[in-house]
Structures are given as C-alpha cells and as structure tokens.
Nucleic acid binder design. Structure first.
Length: 273
DNA sequence: CCAGTATCCTGCAGGC
DNA sequence: TGCCTGCAGGATACTG
C-alpha cells in the first residue's frame, strides 16, 4: 500500500514538523520485523540527537539525525508513522516510540510487521544491503533513458519487472497496474518483446502516475497529517487497480484481473495489448 | 544470472 | 453469532 507517493507524502509532512526537538528516550518492544527491531540498541544511539529533514529512497525513509546518523524506515504493507502528543493513547502494534523533549512522540506502528526500523551509521547507507541494490529513482529525469533498455534485457512480464526494486525503486502493485494501463501495455507482455518506443511510453507513464499521486497527496497534506498526527495513506483516483469487473474509464470494456508473478493484476483487455 | 514461488504477519471479508 | 478460509502485498530466501 505505501508505495513511493505515500512515502514521499509522509516525508514531506515530517519535514515540516519533525526537525527541532531533542530525543529524550526510546521505548517499545524488541520484536521480529523485516529486520529484528532492537530497542535496547537504538536507545543509546538516539538519546540526545535531533531529527533533520528526512530523505527518501524508493519506498525507504531516511530519518537523518544530528549529531550524524540515520534511522532507516520501511513501512512494508501496514506500517504507519505517528507524530503525536505523548498523551494520545497508543494504538495496537506500536513497536517503537521515540520521545521528544517538546512533549511529542514519533511512533512506529505496524500490525503485519513487514516493515523495518534500523540504525545507519553516518555514511554507511551505500553499504546497507537493501539500499545498495535499489535501482533508478522513478522521478529522476534519467528514468526514460535508463529504464527501457533494462526492461528490454529481460523476458519476465513487464508487470513483474516494474515491481523489481533493483530495476526501478518505489513502484508497488497499485502504480505498476496504473502505469501499464496508462501506457496501453498488457501486464503479461515480456520486456524483451516490447519495443523501445513503448517502453519509453511506459517509463513516462510511471513518472506521470507517481507524480500526480504525490501532487494529490500534497493537496491533502493537511488532512492527511491529520488532527491526531497520523501519517497513513490517501485514496487516489485509480483507473484499473482493484476495479476488476467494473468498466474501463477509457473504453467501457470490463476490467479483468489475474495473478501475475504472484500478484493480483488488473488490466483492460481492450486498451492494453 | 534469471524467473518463478514460498515465506513472513495480521486484519478483514465472505461463506456457511 | 462464530468459526474457518483465503486474500491483501512489501522484500527476500530459495528452487529449478
């Protein structure tokens, strides 16, 4: 669910509100997330530090600190970040709480525990096993030059290739389906059986779909950050994802869905070839 | 190296 | 009402 646009919106929200106060303590429960969450290790590393403006890489958040060091955060499927008054009751599955000296807390909540929070020593992000493998940033202007030849070199379905974070970082199941619909390409089409012209169109669709979703997130930023400081997800207008059985907004055909590469994938049988 | 599948986890929807 | 099953999908380990 949290794909690049949602993570970017969270980043922008945190950028406004997180820098400043000092960390006074850390609490929570060490528990198995994607990587083991070790509260006892984080505690001495975080106390006394202040957050700077956060960064994003793919679907990862990098919460930079001063003195230098970073928290690496991934929201997985159900991860949420809350920046709230300490008095607000904790939701279930709150795994980590970072206490700030202005009476607020940064909380990491993740029922399904597919997310992660990990410490990065300054300058080591290039060696992090997850970050090091990430492909091109989809909003980078180089995307339409870099991505097409990569896709051309593979014979897997384009839908699966778009989800491969080593090729392009930040696309998930929702925006992969949307970008393929927008560029008129069938999700099962092999990368190496697609012309460079069409792949360039796909790269542009990826950029525009993600860019528009971020804009919408930006316009709802105030609501989105919420009265209770909860940073979750927003609903964007979707053309195919989750619309199987409904009519294509472009041609009126019935949207279909099948499992491709282990992921349910919706597409329009008429618009996408 | 590449492609495809299994795995982790909880909440929720649907069937009966 | 309650129980069961299956599905949702991030990244990654594993298999062929």
């Amino acid at each position: 669910m949290p794909e690049l646009p949602e993570v970017e919106t969270i980043r922008r929200t945190l950028e406004l509100d997180l820098p400043g106060p000092r960390i006074t303590s850390v609490s929570g429960r060490s528990i198995a997330l994607r990587r083991p969450l070790d509260v006892n290790r984080l505690q001495p590393l975080l106390i006394g530090r202040q957050f700077l403006a956060p960064r994003r890489r793919g679907k990862f958040l990098l919460l930079d600190l001063e003195p230098p060091g970073s928290l690496l955060v991934h929201l997985g499927m159900t991860g949420r970040i809350q920046l709230v008054k300490a008095s607000l009751p904790r939701r279930d599955h709150t795994h980590l709480v970072i206490h700030l000296n202005d009476g607020r807390q940064l909380r990491f909540v993740d029922p399904r525990r597919f997310g992660l929070v990990d410490w990065l020593d300054p300058g080591t992000e290039g060696r992090d096993p997850s970050l090091a493998k990430l492909g091109v940033e989809p909003l980078d202007p180089s995307l339409s030059r870099v991505l097409p030849p990569l896709l051309r070199s593979r014979r897997a379905p384009l839908k699966s290739l778009l989800l491969d974070q080593r090729l392009v970082a930040g696309i998930g199941n929702i925006y992969a389906a949307e970008a393929l619909w927008r560029s008129g390409i069938h999700p099962r089409r092999s990368g190496n059986r697609t012309s460079l012209v069409r792949l360039r169109r796909l790269a542009e669709a990826v950029r525009s779909v993600l860019g528009e979703a971020i804009e919408k997130g930006g316009t709802t930023l105030r609501d989105f950050a919420g009265a209770n400081g909860e940073m979750g997800f927003f609903a964007v207008q979707l053309s195919v994802y989750g619309r199987q059985g409904e009519r294509c907004v472009n041609c009126g055909s019935t949207i279909r869905a099948e499992v491709i590469g282990g992921r349910t994938t919706a597409w329009c049988p008429r618009c996408q070839r």
